[in-house]
Structures are given as structure tokens and as C-alpha cells.
Amino acid sequence: MKSFTYERARNPAEAAASVLRKPDAKFIAGGTNLLDLMKLEIETPAHLIDVNGLALDKIEPTAEGGLRIGALVRNTDLAADSRVRRDYAVLSRALLAGASGQLRNKATTAGNLLQRTRCPYFYDTNQPCNKRRPGSGCAAIGGFSRQHAVVGGSEACIATHPSDMAVGMRALDATVETVRPDGATRAIPIAEFHHLPGSTPHVETALSPGELITAVTLPKPVGGTHIYRKVRDRASYAFALVSVAAIVQRDGTGRVALGGVAHKPWRIESADSQLPRGAKAVMAELLSGARPTRENAFKLSLAERTLGAVLTEAKG
């Protein structure tokens, strides 16, 4: 780990201003992913701005009837919030399916969105990785790719996004609120927040330099049956092979987002409209153009079968 200076920020604007002033500065909140990567020198900030004192740890109702989740709300608290449990159960379930109790106590809403991939070649600094060292190549292509993306990948990168929470948020049409160093704020729809790898897999989100996530807002509840189904080899404390976040209404309509299949939470609104026709019809659209490897081709049928089971469960 490279040496770094450390400061505690007191308000978002100050934090954003400071990050611009210092070369190679980074925000740190829960730290559960950033420190992990700093130890391996995959992340090498020269300055850390501790944002834990920014009072962004509240969950409040919005004027539109939704919820505004502070960037610093811990995963445990978000999952346990009675409003989230009641009205956004898919989010609560997604959070509880992720990581461990210890990690959820520390990990924050914003940090979870910004998690970096768990591709083992990204994690091993001896290996080429376009995400870690742009232009060096992708060792996962032609290598061990069982966990990797089956859709939306590129010649440069087939990594997946590891978050469960983000998949739940994608199904809920969440919006990411930010503040920029100049004090300007903006709201980024979650669909646009995470990028596909393309030729620039190191550019993972829509955030500009120094931009700080302040909150995630959820629109007003849409009702329906909320299910988050995470499929993995180990029964707990493991990343998804495939996960399905679904909100299904009584008439069979609804929404579906997938985790574990792409560089971002994977949802195509037009595939949602296939829901009344069943899992096969949804997947035909949702996973059209999929380019799996030999090792992860099973994810296509796994995703369809898992959605099938979810739809059966939703019918009760």
C-alpha cells in the first residue's frame, strides 16, 4: 500500500473541493473494497478524504412519495429499514444476500455502487487487465471465466459487477444524486450510472473526477411481489453466479434485472414487457446477443431457469 495523507471532511462541498485540489485523492467511507484494493496496490490514492462525518446517513421520504437514502447509510441499516422492508423488499433482499454481516455493517450505499469487479485477473497485479492497466490486455478472455459476463462484454473486458444491491436498485429505477467540486448537483438514473466496458473498461461509472455521491433516491413504491434470488455454489458469503431481481404484479407484468451476467446490473425495459409470457420470452430479449465463454455458457440457461422459479414463486 502506497503512503497517503488523510483528512476528515465535514461537508460534501468541502470534500469535493478537496479531492480536486489533491492529486490522486480518493474518498473513503466504509473502505471495505477500497482498502482491500489498496493493499494490493490496485488502488493507489495519495490522499484519502474520509467522508464518514458528512451526515449523509439518513433515510428520508421524498416529496414524490419515495425514499432518499443517504450515501453513507450502511448496508445493514438500509436492509433493516422498515420502509425498505415493506415497500422495496427487493432491495432489502438484495442487500441481505450480499457479503457478510460484518461487511454489511461497514459498507455504505455509495460504496456498494462503486464496488469494483471481483475478476481474479483484475485482482492479480501480475496479470494483464485492461481495467487495471489500460491497454495491457484481458487475461480472463481465454482464461478462467466461469464468473464472468455473458452479455454486454467487449474484446477488452468481460468482468461482471459484483453488487447485489445495485441489481435491486436497477429493478426499482433508483436515481443516484451527486455533488461536483464546483458545488453543482445532478441526478443520474441508475441505468446510466454504470458503464459497459467497451474499449475503456477502466471507466466504470458516469461520475466525473471529484464527483461525490450524496444519495440514492427511490421512486414511490410500485407494489407487487418483490423477489431477489441469488444463485451461488456456496450457500452464503459468495458472489452471484446469477441473480434475479424481480417485481411482479398480480396481472403478471413487472420488471426484471439480472446480476452476475454483465459489467453492470442488467435490465432492458423492453424485456420486462415479455414477463407475462414467461421466463423464456424475457430471456430471449434480455440476453439477446449474449456472447458467453465455454465456461460460463451455463449462465444463460441458469438465468432463465432462475427467473422461471421466481415467476412461479411470485404466483404464490
Binding site: R118, P120, Y121, Y123, D124, Q127, A139, G142, G143, F144, D233, R234, A235, S236, Y237, A238, F239
Partner: peptide, 22 residues
């Protein structure tokens, strides 16, 4: 990794051993 000759999943997240829930 049969191309370069190493165990790819070389940490306790990637090499899964049973947890309580198993």
C-alpha cells in the same frame, strides 16, 4: 490457468471453502 500455469483463484473469496450456512 493452463496458458500461464498458476492457480487463478488464489484468495479466500475466490477459493470457496464451506461456510456456516453450508
Amino acid at each position: 490457468d493452463k496458458r500461464t500455469g498458476f492457480f487463478v483463484n488464489h484468495d479466500l473469496a475466490a477459493y470457496e471453502v464451506p461456510v456456516h450456512a453450508d
